[in-house]
Design a binder for these strands. Structure first.
Length: 805
DNA sequence: AGCATTGCACTTTTT
DNA sequence: GTGCAATGCT
């Protein structure tokens, strides 16, 4: 039976020992081990620690067997660390706990129950790339314009529909604009293709378990009994499907403990619903709510600074952060001339703190809003010889060679996996080109077969004998390993198989530095397979399990503690981590907050929470930086510092580089109180360079956003108090690309005929095509594409453009 | 079929 | 500046 032994006095004593070292509120959270508990916990409040002790306590006090404990975390890394710590606390007894992300735990559940929902246990997990390829094909088939309705946006829509447990039929019924109609037309066929391929996308890994539980109450009852205690970390980032799963599983025992911080909700864009945490009390009326408000991580200044950030938001649970830590240093604001300047300043600062302050490299983190920002930072660090580690971007499992190798393995395990087959059928090239693949596709579609099945009978598919021969050879190779898969150790199988695919040989033949790195990467992958397979000596794990697991590995999960390097990552990836010194970079309008988010009050609040998350990663020193100009799409664009900086109170929390007090301009983004226009925000530029603005009064009240009050000259004043003197004599130096214009033609003369679409001739660049016109009168500028030099933005006032048709 | 060249769209954030 | 998709040449 699933009932633990009665606790002895010794057990209770042992359990109580686990409370030592926790503060009274944390102890209360641990002791409240029955029923529904919500722990509202600020950053750095030791929430994961509390959760860990709670689990250990349950085991030590014999309230549950480890196997009766389910802990759902946000990253695999968090689960791994929690497992290790619980084991440290209660010893080897802790084996058998279910810990992991929602996705990894429920993919394991689906594996066990696959047959009940008509899948095989070796199902593939499609990543966004696979999903988009599949959608692209379906769009082509249906004649949907893939330029107008991109596979990416369709995928996003289908994903959020699935997150909300909406069927294709339900979605179609709701469709009321062309975009939704297109999505509705693709959603059903997309699901069918997944099922045919014995594949699941990320959302299916949550949606299918819910369906499974609904259709098979006995299965649900089984898991309800199995998991007597359920813990969910980062509850504010759960979506509707995750919420439903938790609710279903907790229905029996009602022992559910969720931990979260509504102020740190930053994943709404992928369906996370902050409402889950806000309404916990409604779902479980008996629930105990505990607030962990003491911060152990950061200095007082940083904690107060973070508090000032989040005050800009309207909808937050009431929470008072405090700390007994040192007062600390004020937050430092760095202003840079350019992106390059910004990264060089950061590099110098890191070096300085490392050399003079003795702070090890791994105590530094540089955070940014978009992955694209990492490049200049990397460059500066590399130049300065500072070791760094980048999280995200093109992570290990996203590299082409790794994806190719994985596709081979996936195909052998699950031959129905069309996406994998398409990926590797001609990698390395083996004479199976587009036409041949089209032939197979057509044949497969006509007969309702998978591509793999079609490839078994290539001559029936109407291929030429040469093409058929090539396909046969490929099919034979895969088939040989597919048949070995069930009874061959995973690592042995993978090694031999990849060897024979020719993947390694083709990289060796290429013999360039890059190809040799790729070769190394594949070997690293093979080592990972071996490590995985042999991790449990009693029950060696299979290749199929490996493949499902690695599909769900995020890059943060691979972040090792042992490496002494500076960490570069997005603000999103930094959640849950902490560093002695943190740089939040790119504090500019349009970037952070992103231009699109600034238009929408809800999104703007999420950006602000993201800032809050970033700032609270810092233990001792927090730097913020922004650049006056930044490269975007290969072009230098000027930037204005982020509104977030100006929202902060006049409290002495932030200093500029020179040590001067930072004076925010609070009214910068205040909206005027006039018109009552409908619709979204619309900024219009008039001839004088002024702005006009449209919004509803409600939006205005909620958003506090707007550009019309910006004083362009304000930003030209340097932060340095001593820089009142004529600023920057420094002229455009080497790195900056400069364009020479030919002055002379009056704007009116040139302006009239230059309209988008026409061909023009330029004295230096030759013939080009006008892409766009901005501004009027003196300020008018044309974006012109020159085949030889690329895209240029030219002021019509200066550039002599002759229209030629 | 396979390679090279050009054109183009792209920058949110991710399990 | 990048990476992919379409195009065109061998």
């Amino acid at each position: 039976m699933f009932s633990p032994e009665a606790a002895s006095g010794a057990d209770e004593k042992r359990a109580d020992e686990l409370l030592e070292g926790l503060n009274p509120v944390q102890q209360e959270a641990v002791r409240a081990s029955e029923g529904a508990v919500m722990i509202i916990a600020g950053p750095g409040s030791g929430k994961t620690r509390t959760l860990t002790h709670r689990i250990a306590y349950l085991i030590a006090a014999r309230k549950a067997w480890p196997s009766q404990i389910l802990a759902l975390t946000f990253t695999n890394k968090a689960a791994r660390e929690m497992r290790t710590r619980v084991t440290d606390l209660v010893g080897p007894d802790a084996k058998g706990m279910w810990m992991g992300t929602f996705h990894s735990v429920f993919s394991r559940v689906l594996r066990r129950e696959a047959d009940k929902i008509g899948f095989s246990r070796d199902f593939s997990i499609y990543d966004t790339d696979d999903q988009e390829r599949l959608l692209r094909e379906l769009m082509l088939r249906q004649g949907v314009d893939a330029k107008k309705y991109t596979p990416r946006s369709i995928r996003g829509r289908i994903s959020s529909a699935k997150n909300q447990m909406m069927t294709p039929e339900a979605y179609a019924a709701l469709a009321n604009d062309p975009y939704m109609e297109v999505t509705a037309r693709l959603y059903g066929p997309y699901n069918q293709r997944l099922r045919k391929a014995n594949a699941m996308d990320f959302d299916d890994l949550l949606a299918w378990p819910i369906r499974l539980f609904e259709q098979h109450p006995d299965v649900l009852a089984d898991y309800q009994r199995r998991w007597r205690y359920i813990h969910i970390d980062e509850y504010q980032d759960t979506n509707k499907a995750q919420y439903l799963l938790a609710k279903l599983l907790a229905a029996e025992h009602q022992n559910i403990c969720v931990v979260g911080d509504d102020a740190q909700s930053i994943y709404a864009f992928r369906g996370a619903d902050i409402g889950n945490i806000l309404s916990f009390q409604n779902d479980y009326p008996e629930a105990t709510t505990i607030r962990l408000e003491q911060n152990y991580r950061s200095t007082q200044k940083i904690v107060r600074f973070a508090d000032a950030i989040i005050k800009g938001n309207t909808k937050q649970l009431d929470k008072k952060l405090w700390t007994e830590n040192d007062e600390g240093e004020p937050v430092r604001l760095m202003e840079a001339l350019s992106e390059r300047d910004e990264s060089q300043k950061i590099e110098r600062t890191i070096r300085d703190l490392h050399v003079r302050g003795g702070i090890p490299w791994k105590q530094f983190a540089v955070l940014y809003r978009t992955n694209a920002q990492s490049r200049s930072m990397e460059e500066s660090l590399r130049r300065g010889g500072i070791p760094y580690r980048m999280v995200g971007g093109t992570s290990f499992y996203q590299r082409k060679e790794i994806k190719d190798a994985l596709a081979y393995l996936r195909l052998a395990v699950n031959p129905s996996d069309d996406a994998s087959l398409l990926r590797v059928i001609n990698t390395p090239t083996r004479g199976i080109g587009g036409k041949t693949v089209d032939g197979l596709r057509r044949y497969a579609a006509e007969h309702g077969l998978s591509l793999w099945q079609a490839a078994q009978e290539p001559s029936d598919a109407g291929l030429s004998s040469r093409a058929a021969g090539a396909v046969e050879k490929f099919a034979f190779l895969v088939a040989r390993f597919a048949s070995k898969a069930p009874h061959t150790p995973a690592d042995e199988l993978a090694r031999e198989y990849i060897q024979e695919t020719g993947l390694l040989q083709s990289l060796r033949d290429e013999n360039t530095p890059e190809s040799l790195v790729r070769l190394e990467n594949i070997h690293e992958l093979l080592n990972a397979v071996a490590e995985f397979a042999q991790a449990d000596s009693d029950a060696p794990r299979t290749l199929s399990e490996f493949l499902q697991e690695v599909s769900l590995v995020s890059d943060v999960d691979r972040l090792g503690e042992e490496e002494n390097r500076v960490t570069l990552m997005t603000l999103h990836a930094s959640k849950g981590l902490e560093f002695k010194v943190v740089f939040v970079t790119g504090m500019e309008e349009g970037l952070f907050p992103l231009a699109k988010a600034a238009q929408d009050p809800t999104e703007l609040e999420e950006e602000r929470r993201l800032f809050y998350v970033g700032a609270t990663r810092a233990e001792e020193i927090l730097y913020l930086s922004y650049a006056r100009t930044r490269y975007r799409y290969g072009e230098s664009t000027s930037a204005v510092r982020s509104r977030f900086l100006d929202e902060l109170d006049g409290d002495d929390l932030m200093r500029t580089e020179s040590g001067a007090r930072f004076a925010p301009r609070k009214d910068r983004f205040q909206l005027p109180d006039d018109d009552g226009a409908q619709g979204g925000y619309r900024v219009e530029y008039d001839a004088d360079g002024g702005y006009s603005y449209e919004s509803t009064p409600a939006q205005r009240r909620a958003a506090k956003s707007g550009y019309e009050q910006m004083d362009p000259h304000y930003y030209r004043t340097s932060l340095r108090p001593d820089a009142a003197k004529p600023a920057r004599k420094k002229k455009a130096s080497g790195g900056e690309r400069s364009v020479e214009y030919e002055p002379g033609v009056a704007p009116e003369a040139a302006g009239s005929d230059v309209v988008p679409g026409v061909k023009v001739v330029h004295g230096t660049f030759g013939e080009g095509k006008v892409i766009a016109i901005e501004g009027k009168g003196e300020r008018a500028a044309a974006t012109v594409h020159f085949p030889r030099v690329g895209q240029k933005k030219l002021k019509l006032k200066f550039a002599r453009l002759r229209v030629i048709g």
